[in-house]
């Protein structure tokens, strides 16, 4: 690896200040994506601002009809949380589908969402549940947050501090994992708030995570049965040698059904 320095921030302000001062800094959360990228030389920041020691960025709390999860909360903590299990068990089930136990002990919710990696799981839940991203300086609605492949509304120096998930009446996630990497080739998160259905799809979108509006409308109008046999051929999906778009479209279809079956 290149030489770089690590600054272990103890406050959010300190983290942001260090990031701004350096000019070639990156934020470090669990490091499960960034560290391998740095090992390969494909990322070479001069300074890593480590967020893990900042108090208050880690933890899960139920606040009324909302579940607040600190951005530095690890996947294993989401899996183990009683609050998650009672409020939005689908988030725990989703966390359990991320990579493997060892990675989940390090990887964080915020890291996954801040990257907007098209193949990571949590953006599907964030979008479908209409979560709010709480940063060091503002609140961003999910609808405004994901702006394209690996791109978010976060400013370069902005730090994701917490995510607030509205608690749905029901939710579920189904995933088709890449056989080698374990990343989502397609992942479908469904959530129901009263009569309102919301479906988030990760892994396959050309622009990253997206809402499957066809399915949402069908569910609204005809309930679960109506979501069968949707024509998903028109979706603009990632298309590569390993996973052609047609397969992804079909997978989204059966994952939607599998997710609905869990409700």
């Amino acid at each position: 690896m290149n030489t770089f320095d690590i600054f272990r921030a103890s406050t959010l302000d300190g983290a942001v200040a260090a990031f701004r001062d350096h000019g070639d800094a990156m934020y470090l959360s669990g490091g499960m994506t960034l560290v391998p990228s740095m090992k390969s030389g494909l990322a070479a920041p001069g300074l890593l601002v480590d967020l893990s020691a900042i108090k208050g960025l880690r933890g899960i709390a139920r606040e009324g009809n909302m579940l607040r999860i600190g951005a530095l909360t690890r996947f294993s903590e989401i899996i183990a949380s009683a609050d998650v299990a009672t409020a939005i068990p689908a988030l725990g089930a989703m966390a359990a589908k991320v990579a493997d136990r060892h990675v989940r002990n390090r990887g964080t919710l915020g890291g996954s969402v801040a990257n907007n990696d098209p193949a990571s799981d949590f953006p599907a839940a964030v979008l479908a549940l209409g979560a709010t991203m709480v940063t060091d300086r503002r609140r961003i609605a999910a609808a405004d947050y994901f702006t394209g492949l690996f791109e978010t509304a976060l400013e370069a120096d902005e730090v994701l501090a917490a995510l607030e998930f509205p608690i749905p009446d029901a939710a579920a996630y189904a995933k088709h994992a890449h056989p080698a990497s374990g990343y989502a080739v397609a992942g479908v998160f469904v959530a129901r708030f009263g009569d309102d259905w919301r479906v988030g799809v990760t892994g396959s979108g050309e622009e990253g995570v997206f809402r499957l509006t066809q399915a949402e409308q069908a569910l609204q109008q005809g309930g679960i049965k109506a979501a069968e046999g949707l024509n998903l051929g028109e979706l603009e999906l990632l298309d590569d040698a390993t996973f052609p778009a047609a397969f992804r479209a079909a997978a989204i279809g059966w994952l939607l059904r599998d997710a609905l079956a869990q409700l």
Binding site: L42, H178, S181, L238, D239, D240
Partner: peptide, 13 residues
């Protein structure tokens, strides 16, 4: 070699 899952979509973008 190691960025295959990123390249096609990024290039198009």
């Amino acid at each position: 070699q190691i960025g295959t899952r990123l390249i096609a979509s990024t290039s198009r973008k």
